[in-house]
Design a protein around this nucleic acid. Structure first.
Length: 270
DNA sequence: CTTACCGCCTGTCGGC
DNA sequence: TGCCGACAGGCGGTAA
């Protein structure tokens, strides 16, 4: 389940292999992803050169001489660098093959992800209304506090809303709220400014830490020592419902919030 | 504008 | 051992 740190790790993994490379052709084996793969991925790509890669939220953006490729990994997606001769497996949906024999392969068993093309990335509907990056200056106490006023939605849902802040998935939302000592079900609008300030710090911390260890799930790009679960070992509450709180020893509660597993400590979080 | 809920997918896992 | 339902979950879309 790629979250922001895994997406960033993926982007860093492919970037040096694709930048400056000329695209020879693309292959789409399965076009039915979250949305159909843009036809331009096939029709416009040959002959184009990759200029750069970047990331916005959980979207990987690949800039070519004709426009941008927008990639989302959904729940189970991955991008890998392979030799163009590598045989395709069941869930290898799209290949972008470069003239030097290197290939970028998009794989996604559950097909929740997407591969789209845009020639006006700054106006793309998927990107235009996204909230700030959690590690950017724009994401600060003032911003989060102001946006949360009069919001009745649970604070956990609030910080998982990509229009509020990007990249905070279920795992990191649980972790950040525990670190901040805030109950996931508290009304967003009722969280005090002081506690909102703490939450901003905790979201930053957990995301930055996860990026620094290369995320949890995607580790097999380049030179990966391939040790999975780096971040998993840092988890304080996620996946630990019924187990003792690492802070007070009490039993961690687990509830469903909008169909998502939500774990917290009754004593440490208020 | 807000909020709550739906559905897209398939691999995995627990129960019988 | 095999079958089957529940579950996982990002997030756009839609209804109220």
């Amino acid at each position: 389940m790629p979250e922001l740190p895994e997406v960033e790790t993926s982007r860093r993994g492919i970037d040096p292999h694709i930048c400056g490379q000329r695209i020879a052709r693309s292959v789409v084996r399965q076009s039915q992803l979250r949305w159909p793969v843009s036809p331009q991925i096939i029709s416009l790509m040959p002959g184009q050169t990759v200029l750069s890669s970047s990331r916005r939220g959980k979207y990987i953006l690949i800039e070519t001489t004709a426009g941008h490729i927008i990639i989302h990994l959904g729940m189970s997606g991955s991008v890998r660098i392979l030799d163009s001769g590598a045989p395709a497996g069941k869930h290898d949906h799209v290949d972008i093959v470069f003239s030097n024999g290197v290939m970028l392969r998009y794989t996604d068993p559950r097909r929740f992800g997407c591969m789209l093309w845009s020639d006006a990335i700054e106006h793309h509907p998927l990107l235009v209304s996204l909230g700030p990056e959690p590690l950017s200056d724009a994401f600060d106490t003032q911003y989060l506090y102001q946006r949360s006023r009069s919001r009745k939605t649970p604070i956990k849902s609030f910080i998982m809303d990509s229009h509020v802040v990007v990249g905070v998935g279920n795992i990191y939302a649980n972790e950040a709220l525990f670190m901040a000592g805030i109950r996931p079900l508290a009304d967003a609008g009722s969280v005090s400014r002081i506690r909102m300030a703490r939450l901003v710090v905790c979201i930053r911390q957990v995301i930055a830490h996860a990026i620094s260890v290369g995320g949890t799930t995607l580790r097999d790009f380049v030179g990966g020592d391939g040790k999975p679960g780096y971040f998993k070992q840092s988890l304080l509450v996620y996946g630990r419902g019924g187990e003792p709180c690492k802070q007070c020893g009490g039993v961690l509660q687990e509830v469903r919030l909008s169909a998502r597993s939500t774990v917290f400590c009754k004593r440490c979080q208020r």
